[in-house]
Amino acid sequence: MKKGYKLIYQRPKTLTDTRINYCPGCFHTTMHKLLMEVVDEMGIQEKTVGVCPVGCSVFAYNYMNVDMQEAAHGRAAAVATGIKRMLPDRYVFSYQGDGDLAAIGTAETLHACNRGENFTFIFINNGIYGMTGGQMAPTTLEGQKTTTSPYGRDVEKIGMPLKMAEIVSQFDRVAYVERVSCNTPANSRKAKKALRNALEYQGKKLGTTFIEVASNCPSGWKMTPEESLKWLEDKVFPYYPLKVFKKPDKKEV
């Protein structure tokens, strides 16, 4: 404590002391922080169970001081379904990247949404396979260069980038879908609010809640963190707009 000063912001207690090993400026780190802030503020550490993905955030359980299960690649939605059905009063989230949620695990994702599984998806969409070294993702933008699309994503060959938030908002039993980002302080605050909404709706058993994060990957994109923010503004947001796609009726809330 500083004398004469009031503490108004500090690192969330539910983040472990472990130094986070993600690359400088990566939104995984930001989202871990925001999620743990929400867990702290809601006072639900004892009731939270998370599911880790395969991808960069495979080690999320090293940083989040809550019970966690590591899922096979793409299967987080099925694992979260199993947990939540057994422990309906816990707060369950699956934390997944685009390869996990929108490629290898698309079936599990869509069916969990269709059943209205009452857990929260946190979908980190950075348009690239970060951990394996920058290969093309189902969400890589048209023309975007990656190690497996060295001349840019050819949509004639591979199709358009998948819009998961738009897709899952079509399901009747999905309660809340929002796409957020962390590129500015204002957007980070919105992202945190979205996480809070999702967990609160989950607590009220309103159905599936789905937060897509238009994320960056400075290393995979071969940019500085600041350049990655500009890329988000210029290229990503026009295709992946930040907005609320679906929210519960006021009466339900």
């Binding site: 500083k2 503490l7 969330p12 400088p24 990566c26 939104f27 995984h28 930001t30 922080k33």
Partner: peptide
């Protein structure tokens, strides 16, 4: 708020 690594404390 924007610091990914939660390295900043504010008073």
């Amino acid at each position: 708020v924007i610091c990914p690594d939660a390295a900043i404390t504010v008073y």
